[in-house]
């Protein structure tokens, strides 16, 4: 029995090591490429022939607005994270704890609305934003507005989590004379740390990947680009020869803080997602 267990464990370790290699390989490749000294695009070997910091120097040099793009993205991410969290908590609490006419209808229709191919409406959103002066120069607040405007539809996971908090707690508080607002503020929110962190974390991560819509809104005004818009140009258009290693370096700089944050809050992420996601 014991030997069988040990053999099983060795096998498990072997599988896990293989999995880890597969999962880490692209990241190792990215990091190594970012330090590559040789000129050029993609290469077919992993270890650079010469190491250098030139790619990073370029990003922070005078010829590149990388810092600007980075800050743009950071500002968007922070605001989106904060506002989205507030909105999602509000919506989730209302849908989980209150019973009102049209509640089911509302939930169903939001579920359905989420399925409409979003980019079909991109041109419409662009002109709505333009009406408010939030394109090109104003693309950063514009992107924040669009991201948070519909964030209420992402109530799913959070509502599921609220559903698991016993209703009897609420009832007891109501008997004690607390208003709903007080219950939300003083009881539900303190009990929901994981889901709040989860919501904020997911919202924070999304803007770093926003390419399609961001490029649509900020076009022709490079001061408003976010990192994804600015950097995908380097690999997708012919105008930027030899930018591939710079792209890798920029990618690493984007990945580090997001990954670090994610790792630090991983515990809450798991609690949040398992507490809520699965329950709809």
């Amino acid at each position: 029995m014991k030997r069988k267990m040990i053999r099983g464990n060795i096998l498990a370790y072997a599988v896990l090591v293989i999995i880890s290699i597969i999962w880490l390989f692209p990241f190792v490749g990215l990091v190594l490429q970012s330090f590559r000294g040789e000129y050029g695009g993609m290469v077919n070997y992993l270890i650079p022939k010469q190491f250098s910091l030139d790619n990073y120097k370029f990003l922070f040099g005078p010829d590149c607005k990388f810092v600007r793009w980075y800050l743009n993205t950071l500002v968007i991410a922070v605001f989106v994270a904060i506002i989205t969290t507030v909105v999602v908590i509000c919506v989730s609490y209302a849908l989980s704890r209150m019973r009102f006419k049209g509640r089911k209808l509302l939930m169903n229709s939001w579920l359905v609305l989420g399925m409409f191919p979003g980019f079909l409406t991109m041109i419409c959103l662009y002109f709505l934003l333009k009406l408010l002066g939030l394109t090109q120069e104003g693309a950063v607040p514009g992107l924040i507005l669009i991201s948070v405007a519909s964030s209420g539809m992402g109530y799913y996971v959070c509502k599921g989590y609220f559903d698991t908090i016993p209703k009897s707690l609420d009832e007891a508080a109501i008997i004690d004379g607390a208003s709903r607002a007080q219950i939300l503020w003083k009881m539900t929110i303190p009990l929901s740390k994981p889901i709040i962190i989860y919501t904020a974390l997911v919202a924070f991560m999304a803007p770093w990947c926003d390419y399609i819509f961001a490029s649509y809104v900020a076009f022709g005004f490079s001061d408003s680009y976010n990192v994804a818009v600015a950097m995908t140009r380097w690999v997708w258009t012919n105008d930027y020869q030899g930018y591939f290693t710079r792209f890798c370096a920029g990618g690493i700089l984007v990945a580090i803080p997001v990954t670090a944050l994610f790792m630090a809050l991983q515990k809450y992420y798991v609690e949040g997602v398992t507490g809520g996601a699965v329950k709809g």
Binding site: V87, C90, V91, L125, I146, G152, S179, A181
Partner: peptide, 25 residues
């Protein structure tokens, strides 16, 4: 803030969804 708290909570999110999701659709 109490029995009609749902309306307070949902007002802004619904407005946002209406203008930036429903209207474009």
């Amino acid at each position: 803030l109490d029995e009609h708290f749902d309306k307070t909570l949902l007002a802004l999110p619904m407005l946002g969804i209406f203008v930036f999701t429903v209207l474009p659709i």
